[in-house]
């Protein structure tokens, strides 16, 4: 029993000291997988942006075509 308490204390102190020595990273965000939500949100924004720019590109291309044919 004594040994058990000692190891428990040892574990806890190591936990506390490790929290102080090591820079804190967003490990929880990674371990529970919520980071994927962040990635998905950013990807949605990026894809939306690219679709917008692509449609604009196509519109301008069509317009260029029309003015060229008019000549």
């Amino acid at each position: 029993m004594n040994k058990f308490i000692l190891t428990l204390i040892g574990l806890m102190t190591s936990l506390i000291t490790s929290a102080q020595d090591k820079p804190e990273m967003a490990d929880l965000l990674r371990s529970n997988g919520k980071i994927y939500t962040v990635v998905a949100v950013c990807l949605t924004i990026l894809i939306g942006l690219f679709i917008y720019v692509f449609i604009l590109d196509r519109k301008i291309s069509r317009f260029e075509h029309e003015t060229k044919n008019r000549k």
Partner: peptide, 22 residues
């Protein structure tokens, strides 16, 4: 490249540094 940036930029490991963190 930008899809790669977002996926790998958020998911890959980076150096663990004080002040900067994530």
């Amino acid at each position: 490249l930008l899809v790669y940036t977002i996926v790998c930029g958020f998911l890959l490991d980076v150096p663990h540094l004080f002040i900067l963190n994530e």
